[in-house]
Nucleic acid binder design. Structure first.
Lengths: 222, 222
DNA sequence: CGTTCGCTTGAGGCCGTTCAAGCGACGTGG
DNA sequence: CCACGTCGCTTGAACGGCCTCAAGCGAACG
C-alpha cells in the first residue's frame, strides 16, 4: 500500500484531516525487516512509534534463562511501542518480525509534537492504549487463572467465531501455536489429544473440527 | 484532603490551570467504601473514572472457579478504570476496597468532554496509561516466566531499594503478600523458609532482613 | 483458660516441563 | 526409484513446582 493510504487506514490516524495527513507524511518513514529479525529489543532506548504495514510482528518478553512469553501478536494497521512514547526511556518488550515485514516509523519527538496540534489523534491513541490494557488484563488472567486446556479452548472458540466456521485450518505450525498459548508443543499435543479423546474436536493434520462447541466453551477459564 | 487539593495532587490533573480546576470541581464527586466492599465488578457497564483519595484499592480478575489474580494495587492519587473511558462498555476488572477508602469519581461523559478542552490532561492520561502498560507487561513476564521464588525476590529487592534499607517491616499480612505475588500463604511460607535456610535473608515475625543482596538479586527471573 | 487468628509444616496430587524416543511426510541425492 | 536425511509432531517416563487438604503451634484476647 502507498504511504498515504496506509496512514489513513491505521487505527490511530483514522479520519485525519488532509492537512494533517500531509504533515504526517513528512515525518513517517518506512522500513523493512526480514523474517526472524529483531526490530527492537527490550531495554533499548525508545526512539520511535511503529505501525505495522505488512507481515507479522510479535512482541515478547524473555527471561535470562531463555524462556519467552508472547505479549502481543501485532495486527496489520496497528501501532506498537505506544508505551515508549509516553513513559520511560526504554522499550519494555522485544519486537520480532515473524515474517518479512514492512513497518512505518515516526520518531518520538516528531510524534509528540504532532499530537499536540492534533487532539483527535490523542483520543485515538488513548483508545488504542485502552484496548491494549484490556488485552493485557485478560492475558494476565488467562495465564494465571487458566490451564493450557482453557487457553486452547478459548483460542479455538475465538477463531471459530471470527471465521464463522466450525472447521479451522490452523495456518501456523503447532509449535508456534503452543508458543502463542504460552506453552510448548508437547503439552499442546497432549491437550489436543485430550479434546479429541473426549469427542469435543477432531484433528486431521493441520485442521481442527469442532464437534461439541458447548462443551468446548465450558472448558474456558477452568 | 479537600477536593481541590486532592485533584491537584493527582497524577493526571497535575499542573492544571485554575479555571480548569474550577470546572473539574463541578463534575467530581466523592464517595466512600468500607473495607472488603466492591467498588465495581468486572463486566459491569463502565460509568466513571476513579481517583483514589485514601485507603487501599485492589484491581483483580477472578475465575469462575473462585481463584483470583491481583492486577494492580492502586496507589493514592492514582486513577483507575482508565481503560473503561476509552474502549468498550464494561469494566475489565473488579475493584475492591481493602480498607475503608475514599475515592473521587468523574462520570465518563463528563470526563470525555472535559479532556477535549484540556489537551494537557490527555497527555497526562497517556502517560498514566503508558505506565500501566509497562506494569502489565512486567506482570505477565513475572507470572509466566518466573517462579514464586523469583517474584518474592523482586518484591524484597524492590521494597528494600525504595525504602533504602535492608530491613523490611512487611506492614501487611503474609496472606495478603502471597496474594500480591500471585500465590498462597503456604507457598510463600515455604519460599521464605528456603531463603532463610540458604542464609539469604532472616525473618523474625513480620520483619525481613536481607543478609545477601547479590544472591537475592540473582534469583530474580529464575 | 479456651478460642481465634495468622502462620508454619507435612503429605499427597496435579499440571506442565524436560529429556528421549518413535513416527510419518517430504525432499534430495545416489 | 529407493535410501536416507530432516522436519514437525506425537508419545512416554521422570521430575519439579505449586496447590489442596489437614494438622500443629504460638500469640493475642476475651
Amino acid at each position: 500500500m502507498n504511504k498515504r493510504e496506509l496512514i489513513k487506514s491505521s487505527f490511530i490516524f483514522n479520519n485525519i484531516s488532509e492537512s494533517a495527513l500531509s504533515r504526517l507524511e513528512k515525518i513517517v518513514a518506512r522500513s523493512t525487516f526480514n523474517a526472524d529479525s529483531i526490530i527492537f529489543s527490550e531495554g533499548e532506548p525508545a526512539e520511535a512509534l511503529y505501525i505495522l504495514d505488512s507481515g507479522a510482528v510479535d512482541l515478547i518478553k524473555s527471561s535470562p534463562g531463555g524462556r519467552e512469553q508472547l505479549i502481543r501478536a501485532v495486527g496489520i494497521g496497528e501501532t506498537f511501542a505506544e508505551a515508549a512514547m509516553f513513559s520511560g526511556e526504554n522499550y519494555p518488550v522485544t519486537a520480532i518480525a515473524r515474517e518479512r515485514s514492512s513497518v512505518l516509523t515516526i520518531r518520538k519527538s516528531d510524534f509528540l509534537q504532532f499530537i499536540r496540534s492534533n487532539p483527535e489523534v490523542s483520543l485515538n491513541m488513548m483508545g488504542a492504549m485502552a484496548k491494549l490494557l484490556r488485552h493485557l488484563n485478560t492475558l494476565v488472567a488467562n495465564i494465571s487463572l487458566g490451564s493450557v486446556q482453557s487457553r486452547l479452548a478459548s483460542y479455538i472458540i475465538e477463531r471459530a467465531e471470527r471465521e464463522k466456521s466450525s472447521v479451522l485450518k490452523l495456518g501456523i505450525k503447532k509449535r508456534d501455536l503452543a508458543f502463542q498459548l504460552g506453552t510448548i508443543s508437547e503439552t499442546l499435543s497432549r491437550n489436543l489429544k485430550r479434546l479429541k479423546d473426549n469427542g469435543i474436536i477432531n484433528i486431521k493434520g493441520n485442521t481442527i473440527t469442532i464437534k461439541n462447541k458447548s462443551m468446548l466453551k465450558s472448558l474456558i477459564n477452568k
